[in-house]
Every structure is written in structure tokens, then in C-alpha cells.
């Protein structure tokens, strides 16, 4: 302790400079965080205010008391013509799309990656290229032919048609391949000496070992599936099949036309509901998610 008092004279200047730069750092970060948050705040405000006020004055500074009312309308009253696309039914469809996509992708990807990494396969290289070429072309560039084919197969307005074509890429397979390759060589050798066959090794050792990776992949894929827009827009014409994100298109069209007061409150509640589940997952499982995302870099 004594030597601290001895050295008080010198560090005065560096210390002050340090403080200033820290202040700037925080200021930049806080500004960034506020810009990120601002649009959501506006949405919340308009969702809690009577539509007529929003229409006249735009987003205000104070929160109103209409949030529960708008929430009820958004969730349980249909906005379309058939009466099928309530917020609740869209929520359910989004959930099915997100879960179905994430689970399907992970299961199929893990199986394929396991086959490629852990087996002596004569056509392994060929299978590898066949699968990994799909990383090159996003769905968007082959959207029309994909639509035509899905239509030919009679899969319009079905969950299969919604989910399966989206799974036709190798992101998860690639990811798990990378991970499996990083698993120490000796583990499978030890397991073989311990008498475990391929199925046993996969179930007893590889899957439990991949837990974190599966969780990370699940989060990324769920968000990706939930947020799909173009494909659901094309493939679902039946309002009962709409997802929340696809429903945005309908909301926009409703706000567009008509002479009545646009239902800003209800629309914004729907938009918030469309955003909330994936955001919550990403925030709560942040460390897994970040790990999964950045791991794919390698």
C-alpha cells in the first residue's frame, strides 16, 4: 500500500486521458444501442396509441393505453378475407416453420455429415461436392423453378412445401462436418476398442458431444426459418397457412389501400410479435448463438 502513495505524482496525466477515451467509447456504444432500439420503441408507442391519433400526428412521445386492446385484435381477429389469418394462427404457422426447418435441417445435416466424416465411402468425394455445391446458390436465385416444381408436386399451401425446399442446402451439413472433424481422432478409436459400432458411437458419444453445437445450430436455423419471407409468400396463398413474417405483406397492403383509418396499432402489434420470439431466443441463448455463428467462419 505504501508504494501507491509514493507514486501518486506521476500517473495524473495518463489517468485523465484514459477517462476521456473511455467516455467516448461509451458514448459511441450507447448511441449505437439507441439507434438499434429506436425503431422498436416507435413500434411499441404506436401499438399502444389509438389509430386515429397515430394517423393524425404520427408516433408521439408517450405510451398510450391501447396495447392490450390492440393485442387482442391482432391475435384473435382475422385481418384477411377468409377469417383464417388471426395473429394466433400465423404465430402457430411461424412456429411450425421455424421448428420444422431447424429440426429437419439439423437431423438431416448431422446424418449426412456423420456419413461423410466417419465412414470410408467410395463416392464420399462425389457426395461431398454434390452437397456442398448447394452452398453456392441461395434459394432466391432459383426461386421460380423451385416454385414450379413444388407446384408440380402438389405441395402448395402445405407445411411440407413450406419447409422441405428450404432445407435443400448444406449449411448445417457443412457446419457439422467442420465440427466432427474437430472432434479428436482418438475418441472414435477409443470407442471402437470399447466395442461401440457406428450407431452406438453416434448415439452414445457424438450426439451428446455435439450438444452445444446442436443448440447453436438450432437457434440460428430457427431464426432463419421463422424469418423466411420470399418462399412463404410464393408458396402460401391460403390465408390459414400464412406465417407472421409473410403476414407483413398483407399488413402493408392493408395499410396501403382503403379509406378508413389504417389499423396501425394492430399492425404494429403483429410486427412486434413477429420479432419477439427470435429476438428472445437470440438474447437468452446468446453465448451458444454467437459460438455457432462465428464457428461457421472456419
Amino acid at each position: 500500500m505504501a508504494d501507491i502513495s509514493l507514486s501518486t505524482a506521476t500517473p495524473v496525466i495518463p489517468r485523465r486521458r484514459f477517462l476521456w477515451s473511455t467516455l467516448v467509447d461509451h458514448a459511441v456504444l450507447i448511441t449505437g444501442a439507441l439507434i438499434m432500439f429506436f425503431p422498436l420503441l416507435v413500434m411499441l408507442q404506436t401499438a399502444s396509441t389509438p389509430d386515429i391519433e397515430t394517423m393524425k400526428y404520427g408516433p408521439g412521445l408517450y405510451f398510450g393505453d391501447q396495447l392490450d386492446d390492440n393485442f387482442r385484435k391482432a391475435m384473435f381477429e382475422a385481418s384477411g378475407f377468409s377469417g383464417a389469418n388471426t395473429g394466433l394462427s400465423m404465430f402457430k404457422n411461424s412456429l411450425i416453420l421455424g421448428l420444422g426447418f431447424a429440426i429437419g435441417k439439423i437431423v438431416i445435416g448431422m446424418m449426412a455429415a456423420y456419413a461423410i466424416v466417419y465412414f470410408r465411402l467410395r463416392f464420399a468425394t462425389f457426395a461431398f461436392w454434390l452437397i456442398f455445391t448447394t452452398l453456392l446458390l441461395p434459394l432466391e436465385v432459383r426461386i421460380l423453378p423451385s416454385y414450379e416444381i413444388t407446384q408440380k408436386l402438389g405441395l402448395l399451401n402445405t407445411y411440407t412445401g413450406l419447409i422441405v425446399p428450404l432445407i435443400a442446402s448444406a449449411t448445417a451439413t457443412f457446419f457439422f462436418r467442420q465440427f466432427f472433424r474437430s472432434v479428436p481422432e482418438e475418441l472414435v478409436e477409443a470407442a471402437r476398442i470399447d466395442g461401440a459400432g457406428p450407431v452406438k458411437f453416434f448415439i452414445d458419444i457424438l450426439v451428446p458431444l455435439s450438444q452445444t453445437m446442436i443448440a447453436a445450430m438450432f437457434i440460428i436455423m430457427f431464426v432463419y426459418g421463422w424469418n423466411q419471407y420470399l418462399w412463404p409468400t410464393m408458396i402460401t396463398t391460403d390465408e390459414g397457412m400464412y406465417t407472421l413474417v409473410r403476414g407483413i405483406k398483407r399488413i402493408v397492403q392493408v395499410l396501403q389501400g382503403g379509406n378508413e383509418i389504417p389499423e396501425y396499432g394492430r399492425a404494429n402489434v403483429l410486427a412486434i410479435i413477429a420479432v419477439l420470439p427470435p429476438v428472445a431466443i437470440v438474447i437468452f441463448f446468446q453465448s451458444w448463438f454467437v459460438k455457432g455463428l462465428t464457428e461457421s467462419d472456419k
Partner: peptide, 8 residues
Amino acid sequence: QNYALYPH
């Protein structure tokens, strides 16, 4: 060499 214990 690296023991190859099953970590889980």
C-alpha cells in the same frame, strides 16, 4: 496420448 476420455 490425449487420453480420449468421453468428455460428457
